[in-house]
């Protein structure tokens, strides 16, 4: 009885178990496969991994308010812009650029404060029965009046869209992006709604010819994890990698940064380095269907079948998304992109 009381008291008063070796993660990525990966890390190093997952902004708010008392070591999220914005609020400390990390992650996908752990491409999907993109089609082309009423994309409050538009601002300037956004909105087949997968489904169902969505969604559908109907629907749609004649396809990252008051900084770096080993990268590409952050690990077959040789936009630094997201949102909303 005494034991039970003590253990409940322990649960009440101590928010994390005090272990000699641990690392605490705030994560806006919800994948179960991440948890499995952390278990592998614990098995290897003896360092326990504790997680709180939640909505990105709410987690950031909690971390900020906890201040010096924040037990979190790592903040992991699925958008470079969010990492950048959090960095500019001074919530990270340097350290994500350990020699080990620098060696494997291209400079374009990391900063001194955070590093990418997986890559994602935001591409155009089309219905091969009704349309056929020319090899050099671009994101910019989606605003062409000839696609009137045939394009679907999710809402402007979505952070992947904000990063995409941020990259357009960076490359084409704010003025041109405004015009582009207005053109795109007038091409919408319906009011923006649903998640990325819903856009792919809309093309499969014939509601639109073109959709913008990340690549791993179609792999998720093709994998059968969402049942045979979704699998069959996904086969009716093809992804297309735009801007091959120019800067390349828009890339984003899942990434992590070391929090300012991290009590276990060394362990956090160890975990980041572990996530960037070929073993961990293989686990990631086969579960979330993202692209590997490091050289030498091929994407899952469901992704690699669409081609590996496409040109990625390595010119636009992903660290620039954060600064331009607010501007991007403004341009989108003013264009009537709900």
């Amino acid at each position: 009885m005494k034991k039970l009381v003590l253990s409940i008291l322990g649960l009440l008063f101590i928010s994390t178990s005090v272990m000699a070796q641990e690392v605490n993660i705030f994560s806006a990525r919800h994948y179960d496969s991440d948890v499995q990966l952390y278990k592998k890390f614990t098995a290897k190093t003896g360092i326990k991994v504790n997680i709180v997952s939640g909505k990105d902004k709410a987690l950031q708010k909690r971390i900020k308010e906890e201040g010096k008392d924040c037990k979190g070591d790592l903040y992991i999220t699925a958008d470079a812009g969010r990492l950048g914005a959090f960095q500019s609020q001074g919530m990270f400390q340097k350290g994500a650029s350990s020699a080990g990390i620098k060696k494997v992650v291209p400079a374009n996908f990391r900063s001194a404060y955070w590093t990418g752990i997986a890559k994602r491409a935001r591409v155009i999907y089309y219905n091969p029965k009704t349309v056929n993109p020319s090899w050099n089609m671009t994101y910019e082309d989606l605003a062409d009046p000839k696609y009137k009423g045939r394009v679907v994309i999710r809402q402007s409050n979505n952070v992947y869209n904000q990063s995409l538009v941020a990259s357009l601002i960076k490359n084409n300037g704010a003025k041109n992006t405004e015009t582009w956004a207005k053109g795109l909105v007038s091409n919408f087949a319906r009011k923006a709604k649903g998640n990325d997968r819903a856009q792919i489904l809309a093309v499969a169902a014939g509601e639109a010819d073109w959709a913008v969505a990340n690549t791993y969604y179609i792999a998720l559908m093709l994998s059968g994890k969402k049942g045979p109907e979704q699998q069959a629907a996904a086969k009716k749609v093809k992804p297309f990698f735009p801007n091959q004649d120019g800067r390349g396809t828009h890339m984003n990252i899942s990434g992590g940064g070391i929090l300012k008051h991290a009590p276990n900084k060394a362990n956090a770096i160890k975990l980041l380095e572990f996530l960037l080993t070929p073993e961990a990268q293989k686990h990631i590409v086969n579960n979330t269907f993202e692209y590997s952050m490091i050289d030498g690990v091929e994407p899952n077959k469901l992704i690699s079948q669409f081609g590996l040789g496409f040109k990625q936009d390595l010119k636009t630094k992903v660290s620039s998304y954060g600064k331009l997201q607010a501007k991007a949102l403004k341009i989108m909303t003013e264009a009537g992109w709900n």
């Binding site: 928010s15 709180v52 308010e65 906890e66 037990k71």
Partner: peptide, 9 residues
């Protein structure tokens, strides 16, 4: 703070 943020209490 640790008593009230991130705890069952």
């Amino acid at each position: 703070k640790p008593l009230f943020i991130g705890s069952v209490i």
